[in-house]
């Protein structure tokens, strides 16, 4: 089993920087050069950056027509909000990416398509506001990947198995840990950030209206981005999580196993089962029926 603690310990033993260690470890695992792996991570970063630009198109609409245009709306209202500029930008970018995904744009499923806005939203907004370089962002993606591997191995990243806590929750944990790494380089603080993010996402159900990756997924990307920033701020300020990161991950896995199937991406419970959610599903069913005929 891959634990986050073990990844951090091995990095310390190897005397490599955490991101360097994860690249070295994964390059060996995949049978490629470390540089090739970094090039691929850099390509992912570029797709994330292009995705934010494309997702901020005010004309963008999802296939269902239910969503689009909110990313740019949030960005335009920056400066008027109660959250600070960075948090508002992170929300805007997270929504823009998630909206682009629902509109069949090109995204990086990190960790999943449904939660694809959280990691780029947080990291790219932070880079723009705090001055991190693309090279640092590639390292942050390596760290986010390492955190995701620990979650994937001890729990799951699939909403159909573990609910939204497995998707947006993992995205928030990855973003929180990667950002804390960028800010401090401190593996202990990073693990606390991961645990603090998961503590705030545990139990989140996967309840997509009409079974589509859209409602409430897009707006959960915004909330998860803010939770990631909160978790990183707490950890950087010295707040610790009483429950260690790997135990928090295992708790998420346990809760996932307890979730009834109605709350695991079937579109049968939660927001999907509200009167408005059911009406939307019915509208789409009629559209699809017309399309089929």
């Amino acid at each position: 089993m891959i634990t986050l603690r073990e990844i951090c310990q091995k990095a310390a033993e190897s005397e490599l920087d955490l991101a360097e260690y994860i690249c070295f470890w994964q390059a060996e695992h995949m049978g490629v050069e470390s540089q090739e792996l970094k090039n691929r991570l850099n390509l992912s970063l570029q797709v994330m950056q292009e995705g934010i630009r494309a997702g901020l198109d005010p004309e963008l609409r999802s296939r269902s027509g239910f969503s689009g245009g909110d990313g740019v709306r949030v960005l335009s209202a920056r400066g008027q909000g109660m959250l600070g500029g960075l948090a508002q930008k992170a929300m805007a970018y997270a929504i823009a990416t998630a909206e682009l995904n629902s509109a069949m744009g090109r995204i990086v499923a990190a960790p999943t398509a449904g939660a694809s806005g959280v990691v780029p939203g947080v990291l790219i907004a932070a880079a723009e506001e705090a001055g991190f370089t693309d090279e640092q962002l590639v390292s942050a993606l390596a760290v986010a990947g390492g955190i995701g591997l620990a979650i994937s191995d001890q729990a799951t990243l699939a909403g159909a198995e573990g609910g939204c806590q497995a998707e947006c929750g993992s995205g928030a944990a990855m973003a929180a840990g990667a950002l804390t790494y960028l800010r401090t380089g401190d593996a202990e603080k990073l693990q606390h950030a991961v645990a603090l993010a998961l503590k705030n996402q545990i139990g989140l159900v996967c309840d997509p209206v009409a079974g589509l990756v859209e409602i409430p997924c897009i707006k959960r990307n915004a909330g998860s981005a803010v939770i990631a920033l909160m978790a990183s701020d707490l950890a950087v300020s010295g707040v610790t999580s009483f429950i260690p990161a790997d135990e928090a991950i295992q708790a998420v896995a346990e809760v996932g196993r307890m979730l009834p199937m109605q709350l695991r991406e079937t579109g049968l419970g939660g927001m999907a089962n509200t009167p408005t959610g059911r009406r939307a599903a019915e509208t789409l069913r009629r559209q699809q029926l017309q399309h089929t005929q």
Binding site: S44, M104, R106, V108, A144, G148, L149
Partner: peptide, 8 residues
């Protein structure tokens, strides 16, 4: 984890 790159 960081991928795949895909059309949504």
């Amino acid at each position: 984890i960081i991928g795949p790159i895909m059309v949504g």
